[in-house]
């Protein structure tokens, strides 16, 4: 059975098909109102995240399906000491697909070993967040018209920022993509991510100054320094205001560059940037709903058909 634990679980062809389906859904949402009729999505959020949970629920409701679940570990059987795998075995008896967020890295993979329905990783600690990456890819493709031949700047918390690691991993598979890593020393991209890039000959540079690289970027991906990833409050306070994107800094950027952010933001992008046509982070949110609609549809249809490949049954289902 197919799950989505890591963005690399999907082939480039599958990603392209998912983005194509999301595009079609975005253009004619009414045509997909019955696609998941009679199916149920579980949203198991062992760690709170209003935005991602609502995005999944909105996606399933837009497809005519139903949802159930919990918004924090406090309201689940985890408080009684139930193991994750027992929870998953139970919930997979009630539902057709499960989206889960968990503070521990690898929890969705562990869940996928025991689940009888597809598992979607909606974030596992600081590790992976593949549906955010699909959202990012859809946004980039819609705004720039392509995913290849791109210089992508990633800025802020590159150490704990799981969206950045997943984005690098996904974009690295497209030809002629370069990365510019903008972060303080303490929050650099982990060495294992860089080693993987070197192994695949993906060009990258690292810098501490955003201003120096701004003119070279096609995409600037901003991230928040996340309080919950620090063991030490003092370190968080010291680093949280390191990079703030302002109108002034944006002046050096190309007119066709886009500014992205997985949201929520704290203060790393000045609200005065919001009205700049290059700021696409609220468009990203909308893309998130449609790409999740496409993903839920593809995973549930593949599971029902017993298929190992997404979209193998595309023609039969006519979506």
């Amino acid at each position: 059975m197919r799950h989505l634990i890591n963005i690399t679980d999907l082939t480039c062809a599958e990603i392209d098909s998912l983005l194509d389906l999301a595009d079609r859904m975005m253009k004619a949402p009414a045509a997909y109102r019955e696609t998941m009729r009679g199916r149920i999505l579980a949203t198991l959020f062992f760690e709170p995240s209003t935005r991602t949970r609502l995005s999944f629920e909105s996606a399933m409701l837009s497809l005519g399906g139903g949802t159930l679940g919990f918004a924090s570990a406090d309201s689940s059987s985890a408080t009684k000491g139930e193991s994750l795998t027992d929870t998953i075995r139970t919930v997979s008896a009630y539902t057709d697909v499960i989206a889960m967020r968990h503070p521990k890295e690898g929890a969705p993979l562990a869940a996928s070993f025991k689940s009888t329905v597809p598992i979607i990783n909606a974030g596992d600690g600081g590790h992976n967040h593949p549906t955010q990456t699909l959202t990012d890819l859809l946004t980039i493709r819609q705004e720039k018209g392509r995913l290849h031949g791109m210089t992508v700047g990633v800025c802020g918390d590159l150490k704990f920022g799981r969206t950045v690691h997943s984005l690098i991993s996904a974009m690295s598979r497209y030809p002629d993509v370069k990365f510019v890593m903008i972060s303080p020393q303490e929050l650099r991209v982990p060495e294992y991510v860089l080693a993987e890039m070197r192994k695949k000959n993906i060009p990258y540079t690292e810098t501490e100054r955003m201003e120096d690289v701004m003119p070279s970027l096609d995409v600037l991906y901003m991230t928040r320094v996340q309080r919950e990833r620090f063991f030490n409050e003092a370190d968080y306070v010291r680093l949280k205001d390191t990079y703030i994107l302002t109108e002034d800094k944006l002046q050096a950027a190309r007119q066709d560059m886009i500014v992205m952010h997985p949201l929520p933001r704290v203060n790393e992008i000045s609200t005065r940037v919001d009205d700049d046509p290059r700021a696409v982070y609220f468009k990203q949110v909308r893309c998130g709903r449609f790409v999740r609609m496409a993903l839920i549809t593809a995973l549930v249809h593949a599971a029902e058909a017993g298929a190992d490949t997404l979209f193998a049954q595309e023609e039969r289902n006519e979506y």
Binding site: L84, T85, H102, K104, G106, A107, A110, G126
Partner: peptide
């Protein structure tokens, strides 16, 4: 932070 530190039986 790994799930194996919290979940027994994996």
């Amino acid at each position: 932070r790994c799930i194996t530190s919290a979940e027994t039986g994996l």
